[in-house]
Amino acid sequence: MRKILAVFFIGVFGYYMLAILMDFPFGIDHLNPGLAGAYLKDTVSKTGAVNVVTSIIVNYRGFDTLGEVTVLFLAATGMSALLYDGKTMNRSRQNASVIVKAGSRLLFPLIIILGAYVFIHGHLTPGGGFQGGAIIASGFLLMFISYRNYHVSHRILSNVESTAGSVFVVLGLLGLLYGATFLENIMPLGIPNKLFSGGLIPLIYIAVGFKVGAELTALLDTMLKTVK
């Protein structure tokens, strides 16, 4: 009965979704000339960044990104509050094999360098703070699963995280101090397609990269430590 009702509901829902999507044929230009066209036209001259997606996320919609980072922080805080039960456990089960250990020790610095590259070059190539932070966290994950007693200091992680978050807010307030609006791009824009260009965009994305990397690593450590 429940399944039949669900299938019926899904059929109706799918029919109407498909009917709506018929108005948006695939691959046709239905780009909004006022918004997307302006982003595409003005990005290089106004923000100095070449990657339009990065300039939208960090510059035009920088306030949204601050909210997004806050949501991630709140989720991490909520998880730690729910999982903490007063006793810390160490993950001492059987060790991984020698090949896995040696391989992950070899790969770990390379993964960290890749993550740092991705978030430093966020305004030039695909990538940015969120992607770089996630790559760094997966590097730490590799160490967590191959070395059972690998240990990160939560104090250092929370210091890195709070410093990076404060840097984001302070850079935004600088815009209010020297310009007109919060997160205004007050630094010189530089030549497009060079590493030192884009004004505040690379600085903010580096701060976001450190924050996301530290946060996700702390999340993984909290969850892995409470596994029985």
Binding site: L35, G37, L40, N51, V53, T125
Partner: peptide, 20 residues
């Protein structure tokens, strides 16, 4: 939507807003 070479024009790019 990445202006990696100066020859690229805005008319040659997909919509960046859904990607963000």
């Amino acid at each position: 939507p990445i202006f990696s070479t100066p020859e690229l024009r805005p008319e040659q790019m997909v919509d960046p807003v859904p990607q963000a």
